[in-house]
Deep mutational scan, measured.
Amino acid sequence: TTTITTTNEEDARRIATEWKNKGYTVHVEKRGTTFRIEVR
């Protein structure tokens, strides 16, 4: 599992989409101002 964190919502969406397009399972969680993107 790879975890990526960013405070930028646009980055979070872009990163999540990129990983999904590669065939990975992506889970995005917002904690306060931080977005945690888990890639499996």
Results as ranks from 00 to 15, higher is better:
residue 4 I to V: 07
residue 14 R to N: 07
residue 33 T to V: 10
residue 9 E to W: 15
residue 5 T to R: 06
residue 4 I to K: 02
residue 33 T to F: 08
residue 14 R to H: 06
residue 27 H to F: 11
residue 16 A to Q: 05
residue 27 H to D: 06
residue 7 T to H: 10
residue 39 V to M: 05
residue 37 I to P: 01
residue 40 R to L: 13
residue 32 G to A: 04
residue 9 E to D: 05
residue 34 T to V: 14
residue 14 R to E: 05
residue 37 I to K: 00
residue 22 K to S: 05
residue 39 V to Q: 01
residue 33 T to S: 13
residue 21 N to W: 05
residue 11 D to C: 13
residue 10 E to N: 08
residue 29 E to P: 00
residue 3 T to S: 07
residue 21 N to F: 06
residue 32 G to H: 04
residue 20 K to L: 13
residue 11 D to W: 08
residue 15 I to C: 04
residue 16 A to P: 00
residue 37 I to V: 09
residue 12 A to C: 10
residue 16 A to F: 07
residue 40 R to H: 13
residue 31 R to F: 14
residue 39 V to T: 03
residue 8 N to Y: 05
residue 10 E to M: 09
residue 29 E to Y: 14
residue 17 T to D: 13
residue 39 V to E: 00
residue 20 K to N: 06
residue 22 K to T: 03
residue 18 E to V: 07
residue 25 T to W: 13
residue 24 Y to K: 03
residue 12 A to S: 04
residue 32 G to T: 03
residue 1 T to M: 13
residue 17 T to N: 12
residue 5 T to K: 06
residue 6 T to D: 01
residue 2 T to S: 08
residue 4 I to W: 10
residue 5 T to Y: 15
residue 40 R to I: 14
residue 13 R to K: 12
residue 13 R to I: 14
residue 29 E to S: 11
residue 4 I to S: 02
residue 37 I to M: 02
residue 23 G to T: 01
residue 6 T to V: 14
residue 17 T to R: 12
residue 34 T to M: 13
residue 13 R to F: 13
residue 12 A to N: 00
residue 25 T to H: 14
residue 40 R to F: 14
residue 9 E to T: 04
residue 1 T to C: 15
residue 10 E to V: 09
residue 11 D to E: 13
residue 34 T to K: 10
residue 38 E to M: 12
residue 35 F to A: 02
residue 30 K to P: 04
residue 25 T to K: 09
residue 37 I to R: 00
residue 36 R to S: 11
residue 2 T to G: 06
residue 19 W to D: 00
residue 39 V to Y: 03
residue 37 I to T: 01
residue 1 T to R: 10
residue 7 T to R: 08
residue 35 F to P: 01
residue 28 V to S: 03
residue 23 G to Q: 02
residue 3 T to Q: 06
residue 13 R to S: 07
residue 6 T to I: 07
residue 19 W to G: 01
residue 18 E to Y: 15
residue 20 K to Q: 12
residue 7 T to Y: 12
residue 26 V to N: 00
residue 34 T to C: 15
residue 13 R to L: 13
residue 30 K to Q: 11
residue 33 T to W: 05
residue 7 T to V: 08
residue 3 T to C: 15
residue 34 T to G: 09
residue 18 E to T: 06
residue 22 K to D: 04
residue 31 R to T: 13
residue 34 T to S: 11
residue 23 G to V: 01
residue 29 E to H: 10
residue 8 N to C: 11
residue 39 V to D: 00
residue 23 G to L: 02
residue 4 I to G: 01
residue 39 V to A: 04
residue 4 I to M: 07
residue 34 T to Q: 13
residue 1 T to S: 10
residue 27 H to A: 08
residue 23 G to D: 02
residue 34 T to R: 09
residue 40 R to E: 09
residue 38 E to Q: 09
residue 22 K to L: 11
residue 4 I to R: 03
residue 39 V to N: 01
residue 8 N to G: 05
residue 4 I to C: 11
residue 8 N to K: 06
residue 8 N to L: 06
residue 24 Y to M: 04
residue 35 F to R: 02
residue 40 R to K: 13
residue 30 K to R: 10
residue 1 T to D: 08
residue 14 R to F: 05
residue 6 T to E: 04
residue 22 K to G: 04
residue 26 V to I: 05
residue 24 Y to L: 04
residue 26 V to D: 00
residue 10 E to A: 12
residue 28 V to Y: 05
residue 19 W to I: 03
residue 15 I to L: 07
residue 33 T to C: 12
residue 14 R to L: 07
residue 36 R to N: 10
residue 3 T to H: 08
residue 10 E to Q: 10
residue 11 D to K: 06
residue 31 R to L: 14
residue 4 I to Q: 03
residue 28 V to K: 01
residue 20 K to I: 14
residue 15 I to V: 06
residue 22 K to W: 06
residue 40 R to V: 13
residue 8 N to R: 06
residue 23 G to N: 03
residue 21 N to D: 11
residue 16 A to W: 06
residue 20 K to A: 12
residue 27 H to G: 04
residue 13 R to E: 10
residue 14 R to A: 08
residue 13 R to G: 06
residue 18 E to K: 08
residue 6 T to H: 03
residue 16 A to D: 01
residue 13 R to D: 09
residue 30 K to I: 09
residue 27 H to C: 15
residue 15 I to Q: 03
residue 19 W to Q: 03
residue 30 K to A: 07
residue 15 I to R: 02
residue 7 T to P: 06
residue 23 G to H: 03
residue 5 T to M: 12
residue 13 R to T: 09
residue 13 R to P: 01
residue 1 T to P: 10
residue 40 R to M: 13
